[in-house]
């Protein structure tokens, strides 16, 4: 499998994804557009709360090509953040007073300047320093084998994706061999203390449904994952985040190709929860792409919907203007507000 970009699939162009959101069931009135739904509960326009999280996307290169990937990441993607942009991120992070730094990708570890960035960022002393690791990268090449130790040294909070606690579903979504490599990586992380009570080293897992359905109850899934991983592999972790797949990029390609798009959107709209709107990720996050552009979240980044402020690049970072901005929304946002809601931190309302 290759990225949409490599295959020159029409959905590789974010404009075509947005055109899809503005046509069909959302154009003929069968389903309400997101803006309308949010207006019904007097929450439009969506406004940010205090900025807390800098989510930095270090590039779209990845060792995997997961079928559901919202980034359209893969080995064939060459977009990579430079040290200059990383430095700019750190300067603006300090200036902003944000307390969490969240590194994502692709596989952020594949950025050749990843370690430099982590070391420099550690010096600033953010409260929560997250690295989103796909796990297999930790076993992909010898040069990554020491990463668990490196993470530990910098007190990184590791957030890893594991679609299921059994091989079949995991490999179907993420590729052959992914499950075994992930289990190996989790064992290595446990070995240095990650996910083990009392060490203070946090290891959280992310669960995405492998198909056109919403995730089940987060705490029930967490219990099942904990029990199964412990019994079968003696693996421990802290929390499980159940995250809804947003209908964008390769997951959108799957929805359209499998003729699930309309039913899935219908399910998301049906599960709309006005309470969840209060805690969507864009409320306290700024997302930064490999080039230093600013977005309300990583999903908007992939749709090329930049922040609605005059300056949209790190070099023009204006905290005051950002705090006053309207968040840019479209129909994909229904993925964040369905049921108990979903953000990079999993379920967001009880």
């Amino acid at each position: 499998m290759k990225s949409l970009a490599k295959r020159k699939n029409s959905l590789a162009n974010p404009k075509n994804q947005i055109a899809l959101f503005n046509s069909g069931v959302f154009a003929n009135g069968e389903l309400p557009i997101f803006k309308q739904k949010v207006s019904e509960s007097n929450q439009y326009p969506l406004k940010p709360n205090k900025l807390e999280i800098f989510q930095v996307n270090l590039g779209y290169m990845c060792n995997q090509v997961c079928a559901h990937c919202h980034v359209d990441a893969g080995p064939d993607r060459k977009e990579i953040m430079t040290t200059e942009t990383m430095q700019l991120c750190l300067n603006k992070l300090k200036e902003s007073g944000a307390t969490t730094l969240d590194l994502t990708g692709g596989a952020p570890e594949m950025n050749p300047n990843f370690r430099w960035f982590v070391e420099e960022a550690s010096k600033i002393g953010v409260k929560d320093f997250i690295v989103r690791s796909n796990l297999t990268i930790l076993r992909a090449n010898k040069k990554y084998y020491d990463l668990p130790e490196f993470f530990k040294k910098h007190n990184i909070h590791v957030v890893s994706s594991l679609p299921f606690y059994k091989k079949g579903k995991t490999d179907k979504q993420r590729g052959d061999g992914v499950f075994d490599a992930s289990i190996e990586a989790l064992k290595e992380l446990n070995k240095v203390g990650y996910g083990i009570t009392g060490t203070g080293l946090k290891l959280d897992l992310v669960f995405n449904p492998s198909g056109a359905f919403l995730p089940g109850n987060q705490s029930e899934l967490e219990q099942e994952f904990k029990k199964a991983l412990k019994e079968d592999f003696n693996i421990s972790f802290n929390h499980l985040f159940a995250i809804t797949n947003l209908p964008i990029s390769r997951f959108l390609e799957f929805l359209v190709a499998s003729e699930n798009y309309e039913d899935y959107m219908d399910e998301l709209v049906d599960a709309y929860n006005p309470e969840a709107v209060k805690n969507v990720m864009c409320k306290n996050t700024i997302s930064i792409d490999w080039n230093g552009n600013l977005y309300d979240c990583d999903f908007n980044q992939q749709l090329n919907l930049k922040v609605a402020t005059q300056g949209t690049h790190l070099s023009e970072f204006d905290l005051d203007a950002l705090q006053k901005r309207d968040i840019v929304v479209s129909q994909h946002c229904y993925g964040c507000t369905a049921g108990a809601g979903s953000s990079c931190q999993g379920t967001i309302s009880d």
Partner: peptide, 10 residues
């Protein structure tokens, strides 16, 4: 069937 998928039933 949908409920089973959500619960991770195989």
């Amino acid at each position: 069937t949908s409920d089973g998928l959500k619960r991770g039933l195989e």
